[in-house]
């Protein structure tokens, strides 16, 4: 069972309260009709699927119900940090150095 820190509730709670919502920081195209087929493919289907620190969205469904972002190491499943939706990608150099 993962323990996840909700940055809104400011509490660390069991995974059962949360729903995973896919990779984070994927921007909806500003001008959809201008996109080529390759750009649509990248937006809709290509994911980084990294083996290591993964930027991802979670939703505190059985709590405040809000979406937030997290960085989780997909090899150990350890959360490196969580942050509010809309905040920029955190700089991971400190966390990575500490590991």
């Amino acid at each position: 069972m993962l323990l996840i820190h909700c940055p809104y509730c400011e509490e660390t709670l069991p995974e059962a309260e949360f729903a995973y919502a896919g990779e984070a920081h994927i921007d909806r195209p500003a001008d959809p009709s201008a996109l080529s087929d390759e750009e649509w493919r990248d937006y809709l289907f290509i994911r980084s699927n990294v083996k290591g620190p993964h930027f991802e969205r979670w939703r505190h469904v059985h709590g405040c119900a809000r979406f937030f972002n997290a960085v989780r190491d997909t090899v150990s499943d350890k959360f490196m940090t969580t942050y509010k939706a809309g905040d920029p990608r955190p700089d991971l150099t400190a966390e990575e150095a500490a590991q």
């Binding site: 069972m1 993962l2 995974e15 059962a16 729903a19 995973y20 699927n49 083996k51 993964h54 991802e56 989780r72 997909t74 090899v75 150990s76 499943d77």
Partner: peptide, 13 residues
């Protein structure tokens, strides 16, 4: 499991 991972383990829920 609901999240992507390479941990080859998965959770108890």
């Amino acid at each position: 499991d609901q999240y992507t991972s390479y941990s080859q383990r998965g959770g108890l829920p």
